[in-house]
């Protein structure tokens, strides 16, 4: 039995796992959970797999992982032979990556929450969610601007890591929750850099880059 992902097509968190597995070229089996409208993630069958009732869940043999950031770290450790995505031999990079993985949680709780409100009609304090999202995006923008001065296209350096994968979906999907990208030029540039990665896959709300014809017509 290979990798199994309990999945929901509109979940930005589940998309982190799908995207990373695609970038690593991994095969997996997707088990769809009817998050909306069925609310299957809060029903007893699913709660036996993940008592927290959240998606995604990754199953690999006897191992069940219910935290998205933990899933990314596990997949990188086990399958990334280049040691690029989660370079644990580098203490500085490891510390920085863990910091961005935690930051990704803030994006989920703010921009992700605003999206659930605006898209699926969930009741929550939308003003607080949007305000929190803009605060987080301003921090991300400042960091990416500094990275740009250093000539680094990604959060940690010149190559993408799991920190980028963790922060990408809810930043890219922010307009779904009424949080526009207009004020964040460095973020917009970074989103395009991620969409250019070989093996990139899209999700609803994040469109792929359409091929541009070469100027010489080739």
């Amino acid at each position: 039995m290979g990798l199994q992902l309990y999945d929901y097509v509109l979940s930005g968190s589940a998309y982190k796992a799908r995207l990373f597995m695609a970038l690593l070229g991994l095969d997996y089996q997707s088990v769809s959970i009817d998050f909306h409208p069925g609310g299957e993630h809060k029903k007893s069958d699913f709660l036996q797999i993940n008592p927290a009732g959240t998606l995604p869940v990754l199953v690999d043999g006897d191992l069940t992982l219910c935290d998205t950031q933990a899933i990314l770290a596990y997949l990188a450790h086990k399958f990334d032979t280049t040691n690029q995505w989660y370079p644990t031999n580098d203490p500085v990079a490891t510390g920085r990556i863990l910091q961005w993985l935690a930051f990704a949680g803030r994006l989920t709780d703010t921009a992700g929450a605003a999206r659930l409100h605006d898209m699926l009609g969930r009741s929550l304090d939308i003003d607080a969610a949007r305000k929190g999202a803009h605060k987080a995006l301003r921090e991300l923008e400042a960091h990416l601007t500094e990275q740009g001065f250093r000539g680094h296209a990604f959060l940690i350096g010149s190559k993408p890591t799991i920190a980028d994968i963790a922060c990408f979906p809810y930043t890219a999907l922010a307009p779904d929750g009424g949080i526009e990208h207009d004020d964040y030029p460095a973020i917009r540039k970074w989103l395009i850099a991620i969409r250019r990665l070989p093996g990139f896959i899209e999700m609803p709300g994040i469109h792929r880059l359409h091929d541009m014809r070469d100027e010489d017509g080739g």
């Binding site: 097509v9 509109l10 769809s32 009817d34 409208p37 898209m119 307009p175 779904d176 999700m203 709300g205």
Partner: peptide
């Protein structure tokens, strides 16, 4: 097809339109 797969196929299509 599983019911949840049918739902999600349609949601995927519709959410591509939404933005």
């Amino acid at each position: 097809s599983k019911q949840s797969d049918l739902v999600q196929f349609q949601q995927m299509i519709f959410l591509q339109d939404r933005s």
